[in-house]
Nucleic acid binder design. Structure first.
Lengths: 141, 141
DNA sequence: TCATTTGTAGCCACGATGGTTACAAAGATG
DNA sequence: CATCTTTGTAACCATCGTGGCTACAAATGA
């Protein structure tokens, strides 16, 4: 385990919001379903808010709701909103520039990284939040 | 930073081995190019060895070489050999089963995860180690 | 026999993450 | 206006994965 459980959590949260279109949902309630702390949920919602996927209100009767119709939100947007967006990381220490491989490998890997990331986004963009919500709702288990 | 810099390092290491087909390469020398510790390199090589991508010899004049021709090694194999193989992680804490969303979201996310992972492997399988080596070798910088 | 090299265990330092408390600010309600 | 609810966010800690390092047994060539 390492990477973004952020994304998983975001999809979970958004699926819940999709099921409560007409009223605000409290971070407390969401946290109960995700099985985590309300603050963790709010931190995530803050990111989703910046990406214009949800909108929140403070105060009594506050909470969060989707900013758009679930069929108009696709998972690539969610991915971009929360993920650091890298399947594999470049190394922090830079390679030895005296070695021909070390000198050039970073550029090659960087291009590859971009290519893969784009592939993922294309694939994710085929799934809408609506799709996810329906799958969750019709699951037989 | 989070995910596999393992993969980046593996590609770097394999590219070096591709450039020295006819003789064993020492972990010390590889570590010099990657800019890390020889033990770290050997740990990685151990994984690549298990995946039958390289073969190593102990003792004097020992070292490591590719187990196959670079044109017969594709990056999907490398990815599978070293990566935990997950773009996004499922959460460790399981969701609340009393919530309809919590009850089913895991299965949905798990399927999505598999789909994405397969997509990545397909994309990576289009690149051979030979390709990488040539790109590194002909880079103009 | 000796020098070299891998394989691997064991330990530490570091950084990322999630969980928790705390509190200011926003906003509804009477 | 007073009060209660709820978000937003800072701050802190525990945990965990990772990389770097030392150490040493085992393999192997000279």
């Amino acid at each position: 385990m390492a990477a973004n459980s952020q994304f998983s959590m975001a999809v979970h949260v958004l699926a819940m919001l999709a099921g409560s279109r007409d009223e605000n949902m409290k971070s407390d309630c969401i946290a109960g379903s995700v099985n985590t702390n309300p603050v963790v949920v709010r931190r995530l919602l803050s990111q989703l808010n910046q990406a214009n996927l949800v909108s929140s209100q403070t105060g009594a009767n506050g909470g969060t709701r989707l900013a758009r119709c679930p069929s108009e939100i696709n998972l690539a947007e969610v991915y971009k909103a929360v993920a650091c967006g890298e399947v594999f990381a470049l190394r922090t220490a830079s390679p030895n520039k005296d070695c021909p491989v070390g000198r050039n490998i970073e550029a090659v890997l960087c291009n590859l990284q971009k290519e893969i990331d784009q592939t993922i986004e294309e694939k994710l963009s085929l799934h809408t939040l609506q799709d996810v919500f329906e799958m969750v709702a019709t699951q037989t288990s």
